[in-house]
Amino acid sequence: MSETDELFGIAEVSTSIGLEPDTLRYFERQGVVPSPRRDGAGRRRYTTADVELIRMLVHLRGTGMPLADIAQFTGADHEAADPAGLRVELLTAHRRRIHDRREELDRALDVITRKIADFSDRITGPAHLLDRPDCTIAFDVRGEGPLLFLVGAPAGRAGFAALAHELTGRFTVVTHDPRGIGASRAVPGMAEPTPEVLAEDLAALVDRFTGGPALYVGTSGGAVTLLELAKRHPGLVGRAVLHEPPLVSLLDDADLAARAAAAFSVAEADPQRAVQEFFDLSGAAHRTGPDQTPPASVALPGLPVEELDKNRYFLGRMAGPTVFYVPDVEAVRRVPVTLCAGSQSHHQMARRATQALAGLLGLPLMDMPGNHLGASAEPAEFAHALTLLLEP
């Protein structure tokens, strides 16, 4: 240390790093951090290098690195022959632990998000009802401002509950359960939930409120519904934000198309298998940056009976017509459309399809928070980004 190096007392270090002085003393006694030098009165005097080392310790401790490993990293417990090599080894192992933990947390977050949606649906009160020739569509209305429809397939009122709550300060938000989903229960003789049929249901719902254009946000299959609405009823579309329409039809990937068709074909008889296969081929529950790809397969736990029943309908009847839908590009060009995808959806089926659609339409692809499930998993951040996209 040179004579010009700045020295800090324990109180200054405590304030700078956010650790109580007693915690700093404890780590020193445990051999986790090296003992600092002392002045003539016996008071601890920390160098800038000491402070930065302790700051790194806080990051490692906060992400769950064992104290024994931290002690090795700091070099407090012994003199390593190759300190730099040891630190790379320790950090590499810790990065692997964090990655595994993140995947576990992401799966837990998805479960929690679904449960929040389920319970939110139960406390919203009775739904409004729209009679259709072959079924009844349940919908909710909340907030004040320009009319905004949140459209999903299969996501319905429950799936959009958190996002709708975030948007009610700026918009009159309408959410609905697509036919066969939630309170819009499937009934004998009901038409199949193709994008064409779902678009007519949505048009009838819009007519319930206004005969003119409105704002729309469509996620996943709901974005496909909006592509068909733009074709059939362009006058109803004031602006549509499409988030990750999963159009396998736009991808030159015969293997992916065959895998999707195979998953849908077994949904009625074996929904657990269908969910597993669609989960693996879509990659949609993972978080992947530009330099990451989804894992080839991650075994799912057994689904409860109600989830299996939902997926018999979704994967067996709704998903196929949705992912193999071929949009009318010229018709879509005639309405204001914004295409977006999750910033953590790279190399996943739906983002790849949205990139292909953006290329056909000559539009940019806007990044949104999260992955394919960003609208439900990160509602506050997603709502903020949406507000910017929906502004005139």
Rank of each mutant, 00 (worst) to 15 (best):
A41W: 05
A41F: 07
H59K: 08
D50M: 06
Q30M: 12
Y26V: 01
A76L: 12
A68K: 08
L53D: 13
T48W: 10
D50F: 07
D69K: 11
V33Y: 00
S35A: 14
G31C: 06
R55Y: 03
D22G: 01
R45F: 08
D39Y: 02
R55N: 02
E52H: 13
V51I: 15
A68Y: 00
E28P: 01
A76T: 08
L67K: 05
D69W: 01
L57F: 04
R29Q: 08
L67Q: 08
A76I: 10
T23Y: 00
D39Q: 07
M65S: 05
E52R: 14
Q72E: 15
R44I: 02
T48P: 07
R37M: 10
R61S: 05
H59V: 06
S35P: 05
L57E: 00
V51R: 13
R37Y: 13
S35K: 13
I54V: 14
G40Q: 12
G42T: 10
P34Y: 03
T47M: 08
G42L: 09
I70T: 05
Q30A: 11
M56D: 10
T74H: 10
L24E: 02
Y46G: 03
Y26L: 11
G31F: 02
R61D: 03
V58Y: 01
Q72S: 14
A68H: 06
V51S: 07
T63P: 06
R43L: 14
T47R: 15
H59A: 04
R43I: 12
T74R: 06
D50L: 07
E52K: 11
R61N: 03
Q72V: 13
R55L: 04
R44P: 05
Q72K: 14
R61G: 00
P66M: 02
F73W: 14
R29V: 05
E28K: 04
G62T: 06
R37Q: 14
P34R: 15
T23K: 07
P36T: 06
L57N: 01
R61H: 12
R29A: 09
H59C: 02
S35L: 10
T74I: 10
R55M: 01
V51T: 10
Y26S: 04
R25E: 03
E20L: 04
E52Q: 15
F73G: 01
P36N: 08
H59S: 06
T23A: 08
T48L: 15
P34A: 13
A71T: 09
I54K: 02
Q30T: 05
L53H: 05
T74E: 04
P21C: 04
M65D: 01
Q72I: 09
Y46K: 04
D39A: 06
M65L: 11
A76M: 11
R55D: 04
D22N: 11
V32W: 00
M65R: 02
E28M: 11
G31V: 01
L24N: 01
R38Q: 12
P66K: 00
L67A: 11
E20H: 13
F27H: 10
R29Y: 02
T63Y: 10
I70C: 15
R37E: 15
P36I: 07
